[in-house]
Amino acid sequence: MIEHIVFYSLSTVVLVAAVCVVTMRNTVHSSLFLGLSLAGVAGLFAALGADFLFAAQVMVYVSGIAVLIMFSVMLLGRASDLHLRQVNEQWMAAVLICTVSSAGLLKIARAYCGTLAPSAPTPDTRAIGRLFMGEWLLPFELASLVLTAALLGAVFFSRSEASR
């Protein structure tokens, strides 16, 4: 019973906040709702028993990416933006595309209607660490290389033209 309450309240938070992200006229508000939606996804990870994923979601997404996006919204924003329409003319076509794809996606989801969790979730942080340091060592090191490249790229692109 408690599992149902947790799942339905978390998914309501996630979906309502996501709708607010794509429909809000004020970009600052929609970036705040993005943070709420990402926190709700972290809660869904916790409900799924993925403890390390929950921690990573809170640390990387909620406190990293959402804050970074909020910073750029405030750097790039103008007061005149609040009076402009934030949605382009093709929104009818986008609704149509989403309706058609939702039919297909929900049909796939319906195929797993009777799949229940086989056992209670176990902590998986230790197993993830072993996998990263053993079998998946090369992808793990490549991920750190990607992060270093992203850091250098961000510094390079955000310098002003004059100092380059």
């Binding site: 996630v14 992200v21 970009t27 933006d81 949605v87 929104w91 986008a94 939702s102 996606l105």
Partner: peptide, 23 residues
């Protein structure tokens, strides 16, 4: 899977319709 697909479709809708590039 239903929640995830709805979230994905909301994201697709936003990517197709937002005018602001941060959106």
């Amino acid at each position: 899977l239903t929640v995830a697909s709805l979230l994905f479709l909301i994201g697709v809708f936003g990517a197709l319709t937002r005018r602001n590039i941060i959106g």
